[in-house]
């Protein structure tokens, strides 16, 4: 393997998320059928698989310049053939945001789930419009789409935190023993700390590349922490000593009901 390959793929972040994927897959396969079919477990697993996929795809575009150049050309970008923003715009800024919104929805009390449905509809429609109309092309920085997604994640997290201080089921629980609490806390930090960075990415890299890279590390560190929580969520049925079941977890209700019967 040549040095270009190691330069593209030999990164601590890629190794870390690949390790999380292995651990996550092991625990996901250990879950019973009913748990595997529950979105509380398969959605974090899907996010984990998807993240490893797109991060490696990003690395591959840096390894195979011709591939990156041809996709850029296909999208109409012949000016900046070395950009691989289209990978992260589509996967990290759009699809991941949608998946995280779905994940937040599983933890919200039923009366608040409708707000996430509306956010998803608005997000997809506006993102499609901005891209198809050429206002924010897929191959360049998309500050508006990112800020819209980040605001929706922050709003969804806000709805969750309002739930934990108003809903009786959350008031009975200890938030420090709920993985949803930790996941949303880390999501809040990830999206707020990377907010400015993502909006000014091209500017930062142009005028102060080392600083841009340093601030970009925040995103990667928070990303690793988020993936670690996703693994913990998947493994949570085996970690009953440390974490409590989620108050609105459907499988828990079913098992409670079966115990009553």
């Amino acid at each position: 393997m040549d040095s270009r390959f190691w330069k593209a793929f030999g990164d601590w972040y890629l190794f870390a998320i690949a390790a999380f994927l292995v651990i996550g897959t092991y625990y996901f396969l250990k879950l019973n059928r009913k748990e595997q079919a529950n979105s509380y477990y398969w959605l974090p697993f899907l996010i984990l698989v998807f993240t490893v996929f797109y991060e490696n795809l990003g690395a591959y575009t840096n390894y195979n310049f011709e591939f990156k150049k041809s996709v850029n050309a296909f999208l109409g970008n012949t000016e900046f053939p070395k950009y691989n923003l289209w990978v992260y715009n589509l996967t990290n800024k759009q699809i991941s945001t949608i998946l995280y919104l779905f994940l937040i929805k599983t933890w919200l009390e039923p009366s608040k789930k409708k707000y996430i449905n509306w956010m998803l509809i608005v997000f997809v429609s506006v993102a499609m419009f901005l891209q198809l109309s050429g206002i924010e092309p897929l191959y360049l920085n998309q500050p508006f789409i990112f800020s819209m997604g980040a605001n929706m994640i922050l709003l969804g997290s806000g709805l969750y935190f309002i739930g934990i201080i108003t809903n009786d089921m959350y008031l009975k629980a200890n938030p420090f023993r709920l993985l949803s609490f930790w996941q949303l806390t880390f999501l809040l930090f990830t999206y707020s700390l990377t907010y400015i960075n993502s909006m000014t990415m091209i500017y930062l890299y142009e005028f102060n590349a080392p600083l841009g890279e340093s601030i970009g590390q925040i995103d990667r560190v928070m990303g690793v922490l988020n993936k670690a929580i996703l693994v913990l969520i998947i493994a949570s049925p085996f970690l009953g000593r440390f974490f409590d079941p989620e108050p609105f977890n459907a499988s828990k209700k079913v098992s409670d009901l079966s115990t009553q019967i």
Binding site: F161, T185, F189, L193, Y195, I196, F207, N208, L211
Partner: peptide
């Protein structure tokens, strides 16, 4: 100047979120 604004804005948002989470708890 602009770079300082970016750094401080990032720190400010992080601080704001920390305060929010602590207040909620």
């Amino acid at each position: 100047d602009q770079i300082y604004v970016i750094i401080f804005s990032t720190l400010f948002l992080g601080g704001l979120m920390s305060t929010f989470v602590v207040a909620m708890v």
